[in-house]
Nucleic acid binder design. Structure first.
Lengths: 142, 142
DNA sequence: GAATAATAATCAGTACACTGACGATCAGTA
DNA sequence: TACTGATCGTCAGTGTACTGATTATTATTC
């Protein structure tokens, strides 16, 4: 029994870390009405060519199509993105970022970077790199 | 601009890790109808004296009273816990684990430990310890 | 003893985050 | 052409996870 105490279990440590990370993000972007997922989708969209569909974008942002759809609904309502049906394949709903969305993305990127700093604040420079490297290794296996 | 790519940001790495951790937990405990939070509350309750209230237990499991309340509702419905009003302080709802809850907790603890192993599977023994230590350091600061 | 503050719990509202089911569309084959 | 299978998207359902408001009760202060 390596983990008789649940609070030392990796699952619990990761959940806590996630909780803190979200809180830091929300605090850093308090003025703007945006969430971590919305930012991730916006970033993924900004990096993608202009004819991405929801399934592909969801994969890039690492979430299921169902969650992506509802989050994209909110983003569409805010005018950050637009959806149109691909005439070549009527199943696909092609996404593209609007001028407003792109401007908003650039405007908050500084705040988001600040949030990332806050998350890692308790760690030294070396420790930060180690943590990120280990998480990356863990994630890429799945 | 250290983090021009959102997928390398600590916030995103942690979210992914959390996603994977939950998935591993759910797969390892597939047969039993339980979630990570429910297990955490059960474990916290098993470690606590028999007159804990919801606020204290929520703190120990690291979640807000609102989430704790709704999760405890489900646990009460399953017969794992019981709630009774403290006659000494009628605001408090004293929690205690039932025989069924305690038995269930013991029964799934092996599966949960297995899930923790799966989460860290891609990492070496040293890396696992490093990751847990860094997460602990990060979390304890908040 | 009455006003005030603090505490425990609940409730409403919003946003993830997943599964499983469903309908629509497209591609391949018989 | 009809059948089959794969793919894209949506919907329903469940369960976190938070904030902010509200209620009930207890403790404190004047």
């Amino acid at each position: 029994m390596t983990h008789s105490d649940f609070s030392a279990m990796p699952g619990h440590l990761i959940r806590r870390a996630h909780q803190i990370a979200v809180a830091q993000f929300m605090e850093a972007t308090r003025a703007h009405d945006v969430t971590p997922l919305q930012y991730a989708l916006l970033a993924a969209l900004a990096q993608s060519p202009d004819d991405v569909d929801q399934v592909t974008l969801a994969q890039r942002a690492a979430l299921d199509t169902s969650t992506a759809a509802s989050t994209l609904d909110r983003m569409e309502a805010k005018g950050w993105i637009e959806r149109s049906i691909d005439p070549e394949d009527r199943r696909r709903r092609v996404l593209h970022i609007t001028r407003a969305g792109s401007g908003f993305f650039k405007r908050i990127s500084g705040d988001v970077a600040g949030a990332q700093e806050s998350i890692l604040a308790p760690l030294s420079k070396t420790e930060r790199e180690t943590l990120c490297a280990l998480l990356q290794k863990m994630n890429s296996a799945a």
